[in-house]
Design a binder for these strands. Structure first.
Length: 554
RNA sequence: AGACCCAUGGUGUAAUUGGCAACACAACAGAUUUUGGUUCUGUCGUUCAAGGUUCGAGUCCUUGUGGGUCUACCA
């Protein structure tokens, strides 16, 4: 019973703590996440989801999922499924079943009638252009519509006629009767209902009038008895109308609170622009791993937990903010470092021959799956005379002491195997290294090293005879500029990074070919990689999720 | 031009609500390391400006400055 008093971590929670102290709504906290089902959820939505769900959870409340589907022209059932899937993937479950603003069309219609009867709304025969002209301007009062003083009975008749399909699209609208001189343009007799003879994804042809955002969102909040309606800053001006309607309609007083939306370097979240990227063929679809969509980030391999932590740890304020990719990637590495098994794959392979190792011999070596988590156990690695190592791990000329990798006369350790001595290389006519020749120290075997040889560097490698080819998709940010939308004189498309995707063929441990879609690994010394949805056992495909940090300045 | 919102290290967020400016990321330096990863240690800001109230101001007041939002029958 005695629920402890929670401490507020941000300004929204301060408001809630205060409401709780005053016993508002009997101590009940209920939030909602209200997407319009007209596209895919992106990293910005994740922030809103996390805020709404985590805030409610913290204070013992629940969160509704409500599709804000009041515009039949843009909305599709297909998007509903994706949205639900993405939210569940993020780790959240909403109260009851998914709600729909369209479920409230009848109630909304009744509320409109109530407004009409109170003389607070009127049917306007003005055209869209006329209404725009009546609006006035910032700092300039508007003018009253000639239809503003229609009596309630007449308004009722016309509004019922609108609903009955008697009028053409655009011929009439229902408007609130507020104040055409109000400093907030939204309160200058805003349009509440429009006529649209269009089928709705859920209600079909039942309706030909549809409420606008301002006459659907707040009212839906009230119908669901949402206590705290958390939304982003750009809705600040709508709050005045939100509150005006609560008072005029005498409905449940939900409270709207606005927070600053989250921007992330190198990501854009404009639905229109994302769509353009697809149409122009810059990316392959909504779930392209370079997209800011949750579908894209998931496919790239970002763990839901990392995205949640990122959204939580960046806080909730009213300040414009630009989050760095560094922090997001740190959060991704943080969980993947803990969870991902280490495997070896050579991204740019070159053959390495251990000249003093018998050609007919293969031995099995033990290696730990995850040094961060012993419970993940060990596995065996085949080792023989011919291996693949990273081309970049070899230099033709002897190197200085700060260089730990392969070069003539250098000793290095092969991870979980032997220390080898580099003798030199072979190259083709163009000077490309075709083979590295080494000798190994037989008594330097990992775990039982009695050689006394010191090797500063440890390299990853793959046994050549058993290696499998992996298609690896190396990703970079989609843009060359962290804020491609912030250039007034230049289009964001000018900042497309031509290297955002590089496809290579790597050599990997055989077990990697059997990994299931979505499984993640650390490729030792390279980064974290996740099995792509295109992957098959015959043709394994991995996405670079995020590279390892490196302090090597070579 | 009206109304509203915002201002703390390179980035983002804190500061017991008026009481020694803290945390994370980044960067740099060092230690550890069979991943140049991880881990550990250290370095990096007198809070946009100017006034005011106060014993005391990041916090309150005033005026500036800078940034943002709003004129869809979109959400």
């Amino acid at each position: 019973m005695a629920s402890e008093v929670k401490e507020a971590d941000n300004f929204i929670e301060e408001i809630i703590v205060e409401d709780l102290a005053q016993g508002k709504h009997g101590g009940r906290i209920h939030t909602r996440f209200p997407p319009e089902p007209n596209g895919y959820l992106h990293i910005g939505h994740a922030k809103a989801i996390v805020i709404n769900f985590e805030t409610a959870k913290k204070f013992g409340g629940t969160t509704n999922l409500r599709m804000d589907d009041t515009n039949p022209s843009t909305e599709e059932t297909q998007f509903v499924d994706n949205i639900e899937h993405d939210i569940r993937w993020l780790g959240y479950d909403w109260e009851g079943s998914t709600r729909y603003a369209s479920d409230y069309f009848e109630e909304l219609y009744e509320l409109a009638l109530r407004l009409i009867d109170k003389g607070l709304a009127f049917v306007d025969d003005s055209s869209a252009a006329e209404i725009e002209a009546q609006k006035g301007d910032i700092g300039v009062p508007g003018t009253n519509s000639p239809y503003r003083d229609r009596i309630p009975e007449e308004n009722r008749t016309f509004f019922e006629g609108m609903k009955g399909g008697e009028f053409a699209d655009g011929s009439r609208v229902l408007r609130a009767k507020i104040d055409m001189a109000h400093p907030n343009l939204l309160l200058r007799d805003p349009v509440l209902y429009r006529i649209k003879h269009e089928a709705h994804h859920r209600t079909g042809d039942t309706w030909c009038i549809y409420p606008l955002y301002d006459f659907a969102h707040g009212q839906s909040d009230s119908i669901e008895e949402i206590t705290h309606s958390l939304c982003s800053l750009e809705f600040r001006h709508h709050r005045d109308l939100y509150n005006w309607l609560i008072e005029a309609l005498e409905i449940f007083p939900s409270r709207q609170i606005e927070f600053a939306r989250m921007n992330v370097d190198y990501f854009i979240t404009s639905k229109r622009k994302l769509k353009l990227l697809i149409e122009e063929g810059v990316v392959t679809g909504w779930d392209d791993p370079r997209m800011s969509t949750l579908a894209g980030l998931r496919r790239k391999g970002y763990p839901a937990e990392a995205i949640r932590n990122f959204c939580t740890d960046t806080g909730v304020t009213r300040r414009d903010n630009q989050q760095t990719l560094d922090l997001l990637e740190f959060k991704v590495r943080e969980v993947m470092n803990r969870d991902a098994d280490r495997y070896m794959a050579v991204l740019d392979p070159v053959k390495l021959v251990i000249t003093n190792y018998p050609a007919d011999r293969t031995e099995q070596l033990d290696t730990e799956n995850n040094p961060e988590d012993e419970s993940q156990g060990t596995r065996q690695l085949p080792f023989s005379r011919e291996l693949y190592v990273e081309r970049d791990d070899y230099r033709k000329e002897p190197q200085n002491r700060k260089y730990y990798r392969l070069a003539p006369d250098k000793d290095v350790r092969l991870k979980s195997a032997y220390i080898i001595h580099c003798d030199g290389h072979e190259e083709d006519a163009a000077g490309n290294v075709t083979q590295i020749n080494c000798t190994y120290y037989p008594d330097s075997r990992s775990g039982e090293d009695t050689s006394g040889v010191k090797a500063k560097g440890t390299l990853h490698w793959v046994n050549a005879p058993t290696a499998v080819d992996l298609e690896v998709r190396m990703y970079e940010p989609l843009f060359t500029d962290p804020t491609p939308m912030d250039h007034v004189e230049r289009d964001f498309m000018e900042f497309i990074n031509s290297n955002s995707l590089r496809v290579i063929t790597a050599k990997g441990e055989p077990a990697l070919a059997e990994a299931g879609v979505g499984e993640s690994f650390q490729f030792l010394r390279q980064g974290y990689f996740t099995v792509d949805t295109d992957s098959t056992p015959e043709r394994p495909v991995f996405n670079l999720t995020v590279g390892l940090k490196s302090s090597y300045k070579g």
